[in-house]
């Protein structure tokens, strides 16, 4: 299989991984909405059978519904933003938005691994030019590697900072040493013009991003 095909497959796998995680969250929200609306209906039935309807309780349940609707809306918004990252192969990328979004996408992965995930963003806007989907993919993979290698109960920090015309993203908290950059990660690093190296004993991985990523108008990522 060629490197291009490998990357296409890896891109689809990334999309699938994210979509599976988000649909799980949406299902959870729907399950909660169903139970809370069912509870409201139960209270209505009880009142219809001669019981009393506690107005404060109904108001509180309506508030609980509202919280869940807002939560589900935020989840769908996250999926929508992610889905639009394949709209154009090259554009100015708002790194604060991108890093925050990848952090949100990886949150459930961190929860499953019993790791706390913190995202640290600079105060001011920071941008580079390149393919947003490829950049999200490489950040997601490196973050996933860091989460996988972190100590149980530990904290992984994803920190963005400016560096010359580009930026640096630090993945802190890897606890079980260095992972080799190979396969899709290696290929994505080449395509994005980024470099990734471990610092010190290997508990921090540093991704250096150029101000302008290589490539012209089209990048084949499936």
């Amino acid at each position: 299989m060629t490197a291009g095909r490998d990357l296409k497959r890896a891109g689809l796998s990334f999309f699938g991984d994210v979509t599976a995680g988000i649909t799980h969250d949406i299902r959870n929200s729907l399950a909660i909405l169903k139970e809370i609306s069912g509870l409201l209906s139960d209270l209505g039935d009880a009142a219809g059978e001669g019981g009393t309807l506690d107005a404060e309780r109904v108001k509180s349940i309506a508030g609980r519904l509202d919280v869940q609707v807002n939560r589900a809306n935020a989840t769908v918004g996250l999926l929508n933003r992610f889905a639009h990252s394949v709209d154009v192969p090259r554009r100015r990328i708002d790194l604060r938005e991108t890093v925050a979004m990848v952090g949100d996408l990886a949150k459930s992965k961190a929860v499953r691994k019993r790791v706390s995930l913190e995202v640290v963003l600079p105060e001011h806007g920071l941008g580079v030019e390149g393919d947003p989907f490829l950049l999200e993919h490489v950040i997601f993979l490196l973050l996933g590697m860091t989460i996988e290698s972190a100590e149980r109960g530990g904290t992984v920090t994803l920190a963005l900072s400016p560096a010359g015309p580009g930026a640096t993203i630090c993945f802190e908290g890897a606890g079980r040493g260095k992972v080799r950059m190979e396969g899709a990660v290696s290929h994505l690093l080449t395509l994005t013009g980024c470099t990734a190296e471990y610092e010190g004993r290997g508990d921090t991985l540093v991704l250096e991003l150029p101000g302008r990523m290589p490539g012209k108008e089209s990048t084949d990522h499936g």
């Binding site: 399950a31 909660i32 139970e35 809370i36 069912g38 139960d42 919280v67 869940q68």
Partner: peptide, 10 residues
């Protein structure tokens, strides 16, 4: 927890 709470109430 919200799911658990609503199911328990029902």
């Amino acid at each position: 927890m919200e799911l658990v709470q609503a199911m328990a109430e029902r």
